[in-house]
């Protein structure tokens, strides 16, 4: 199993890579010139701002290969900002268009301390392969200031409460995204990644 992690120059990709390696997968960091055909699944990580990430994706000529991948039906997992980038826009960077795989926008927390940093629960809203085999009540590690607000109810797979109930897992067909960091969420996080590798 070979997992590619998209490198558009901003993120800390090492933790993601180490988690997949721990699970026995081969994990390649993919820059713009790399061969996307050589990997079976793709992770879109992300730190920093929505606007900066989209600009970097375009500047490193990754927009096309990413959109081609998404259209091809092969599995993609967005992590943290990587989930947000799958939507159309964000309050964080007005006027910047996201990858727009899902309809909707990203909003800033107003109810509590920003960023939300720490462990929180994820409640499944519908049948969800990423949480397969989990009892519910598991904690995952979050570190973010913005959250996704999907327009289409059917992409909401799980929710989290941080003064506001928001979407913490979204997905449809081959595309999934998690707002938490599975690579930093201990046993439950590793299980999520294993589920992702097994299910698509």
């Amino acid at each position: 199993m070979t997992v590619g992690v998209v490198d558009y120059g901003t993120g800390n990709l090492r933790s993601v890579q180490k988690a997949f390696e721990y699970l026995g997968a081969e994990c390649r960091i993919l820059g713009p010139a790399e061969d996307y055909a050589a990997v079976e699944r793709l992770v879109l990580p992300g730190v920093g701002s929505f606007g900066h990430a989209m600009l970097s994706i375009e500047a490193s000529r990754l927009y096309r290969p990413l959109m081609d991948w998404i259209g091809s039906g092969r599995p993609l997992l967005g992590i943290c900002l990587g989930l947000q980038l799958l939507f159309e826009s964000s309050e964080e960077s007005m006027g910047v268009r996201g990858l727009s795989v899902f309809k909707g926008t990203c909003r800033r927390f107003r109810e509590k301390k920003v960023p939300q940093i720490g462990w929180n629960n994820v409640r499944a809203r519908r049948e969800n392969r990423l949480l397969q085999g989990m009892a519910g009540g598991e904690f995952f590690y979050f570190n973010h200031s913005y959250f996704v607000v999907p327009e289409e109810e059917e992409v909401v797979l799980a929710e989290t409460d941080y003064g506001v109930i928001y979407t913490s897992i979204a997905g449809k067909d081959n595309i999934s995204g998690v707002q938490f960091h599975p690579e930093k969420s201990g046993r439950a996080g590793l299980e999520t990644l294993e589920n992702w590798m097994r299910s698509w």
């Binding site: 901003t10 800390n12 730190v47 920093g48 701002s49 900066h52 900002l81 960023p115 940093i117 570190n143 973010h144 200031s145």
Partner: peptide
């Protein structure tokens, strides 16, 4: 914060 994000 600009390079790695505030969360870092």
């Amino acid at each position: 914060a600009a390079v790695f994000g505030s969360q870092c």
